[in-house]
Amino acid sequence: MSLIHLREALTKKLLVREYSMDACKFYVAHLDAVNHQWGGNKLFKLIGFLEEVSIGDTLVSFGGEHSNHLYALAALADSFRIVVYIRRSYTTQSNVDSRVVRLLRESGVSCHYLASKDYQRARNDEAYRQSLGRIHNASCIIPEGGNGAEAEFGLRLLATKLNHQFVAPTEFHLAAGTGTTARYLAKHLNDRHRLMVTPVVTPSQLGFDELDNAEIAWYQPRKRFAKLRAADELRLAHCADIKLSLDRVYNIHALETLMASNFRGPKCLVHTGGMRSQIANL
């Protein structure tokens, strides 16, 4: 996908489908369908970082081995020289690349690894990120997950789409990791709507304790992504029955909050993607 194609894809109307499960009718805004291969909220977050760069510039970014952000970033490898710093997960087998890392290498992305301590520094220390960017003469340095103020540009665009496509007051359900998407959707969704945020991390990992114009519904914070209860596995099976594909890390838990909601108007799951970078042994 070129930068031009990305911009065109993000201007199109969102794919919204209606589903029914256990006598509950709800909508799904399929951000995972923004593009045939590439999709999700990560593309909306990326576009704001690319406003001041030129084709052929060097981009430096960061992520784990299964990062949806790095997967999305690989879509732009034909337009930019991309350098990524990766932290290996503690479950990684020696000398075995994840699906995401294989994709990065196949796309021509330059991959480097950081020890856990240095990766934490890259996550939290902008000066350190800048020093790594200077090594590669980077025009743009994108934090882990695209979690910077620049992400507001694309997420405001997403909120505008939801505002236009949902006329009636609607309760939107969104899974949250660091919470960047939740923060800016809460800021730009119309006041007639309601945003329910379901964190999939521990409280210390979420980027805020509370959020204006949104409600946080703690589901079951886990120490390891994709570690599901039997009830979650059953919910995934029911989703498969209605041909709704959800990942095991994020969206399945936001759907659980939606199913438990007593909101009387339309309810919509904001499907942020996540399927493409997921592998069986997460």
Rank of each mutant, 00 (worst) to 15 (best):
S67R: 03
H66E: 10
A77F: 07
F62L: 08
R81E: 15
E65P: 14
E52N: 15
I47W: 06
H66F: 15
S79R: 03
S61C: 13
D57R: 01
L73A: 03
I55L: 15
G56N: 14
E51S: 05
E51P: 00
L46A: 10
G56C: 11
E51N: 08
H69D: 12
A72R: 02
I47F: 03
S79T: 12
S67P: 02
L76M: 13
S79Y: 07
S79G: 09
G64A: 11
H69Y: 14
S79W: 08
Y71G: 05
F49M: 12
Y71P: 03
S79K: 05
D57F: 04
L59K: 01
D57E: 13
L50P: 00
H66G: 10
F49V: 08
T58V: 11
F80C: 08
E52Y: 10
A72C: 14
A77M: 07
A75N: 09
N68R: 06
L70Q: 02
E65I: 11
S79N: 11
F80W: 02
E65W: 10
E65F: 13
G56F: 07
I47K: 06
V53G: 01
H66M: 14
L46C: 11
A77K: 01
K45E: 11
S79F: 06
G63F: 12
R81P: 08
